[in-house]
């Protein structure tokens, strides 16, 4: 009896759910990476972050489906395009509001969210579009895993390591970390803060572009696709501690596992409810994020 109950819970499907959670975590971690950078450095919330991803997905779709450009050529072009978008967003919207109260910045990027959604609706229509690339499936016995997800997982890991190396090894990366701690005195180091912000925004955009390249393999593109990812990406960044990359990474996997295992043991809906409840509880226990030092 005991053994049977054990097998009922710890079957192969549980393992599959755990691994699928990890893979979903990869997708979420990738999304959180760029947002976290912006959050941590510029201290500005890009409410419209997921919409940048959406534009990137459209770019991929049109290049691959309409113009027949190969996936591997389209990807760097998309990353570049969204990087430019990120820089433009900073230059046109954020920079003039840097000294304004945070709520104004929030509202402004919220406005950009609607602008991008409406732009996509007008320019691309409300149709759901699908890249039509179907990657093979990896099978281990009864367990099967999505290649597309493995790819995003690997990309998230590589992206994370690359960002980490950039942030710690280069002068510009160090300046990006420094500027989040003391904006005013950066000029005394000979640092042009405007330039660093622009670089950071472009980098954040590039990461959104990278996420777009990988998400487009798994999801349909439509003007409102950001709604599926935007909120959860924010929660992850907040849970991990704003600007804390490793915290964000861990938070993404925690969230994904809660969604995946919660969904397996109860209703799928409950998986999400559990994840949000977990978020709220953690906000009380560790309001500054998972890895924040206690003060």
């Amino acid at each position: 009896m005991g053994m049977q109950a054990f097998l009922d819970i710890f079957d192969i499907y549980l393992l599959e759910a755990v691994i699928n959670g990890i893979l979903l975590g990869g997708v979420l971690a990738l999304l959180a990476l760029g947002l976290n950078l912006i959050f941590g450095v510029i201290d500005v919330t890009w409410i419209c972050y997921a919409e940048l991803v959406m534009i990137g997905m459209y770019a991929m779709y049109f290049m691959v489906q309409y113009y027949g450009v190969s996936y591997f050529v389209s990807a760097p072009l998309t990353i570049l395009l969204v990087a430019v978008l990120g820089a433009a967003l900073h230059y046109l919207v954020i920079a003039p509001l840097l000294t304004a109260p945070p709520i104004n910045q929030l509202l402004a990027t919220g406005g950009v969210l609607f602008v991008l959604q409406s732009f996509a609706t007008v320019a691309f229509g409300i149709d759901f579009r699908n890249l039509g690339i179907r990657l093979p499936v990896l099978a281990f016995g009864d367990m099967n895993f999505s290649y597309a997800r493995l790819l995003s997982f690997v990309a998230a890991l590589v992206g994370m390591v690359a960002v980490y190396l950039f942030m710690t090894r280069t002068f510009t990366g160090t300046a990006i970390r420094a500027i989040s701690q003391d904006r005013q005195i950066m000029a005394l180091m000979g640092v042009d803060t405007k330039r660093i912000y622009l670089i950071t925004s472009a980098l954040g955009g590039a990461l959104a572009g990278l996420a777009a390249c990988l998400l487009v393999l798994q999801y349909d593109v439509h003007p409102f696709v950001g709604l599926s990812f935007g909120p959860i990406t924010f929660l992850i960044c907040v849970l991990g501690g704003l600007g804390n990359f490793i915290g964000g990474f861990i938070a993404a996997f925690l969230f994904a596992e809660i969604i995946s295992l919660g969904g397996l043991f109860s209703d799928l809906e409950w998986g999400y409810v559990l994840a949000f409840a977990f978020f709220i509880v953690m906000m009380f226990i560790r309001p500054a994020g998972l890895l924040a030092r206690r003060r």
């Binding site: 499907y13 599959e16 699928n20 997708v27 397996l264």
Partner: peptide
Amino acid sequence: KEGYSATAPDLSALVTKLKR
């Protein structure tokens, strides 16, 4: 018998349950 939100970014747990 199960419902899910149409905007959920992941349905793999549902698929796993269907497999089971």
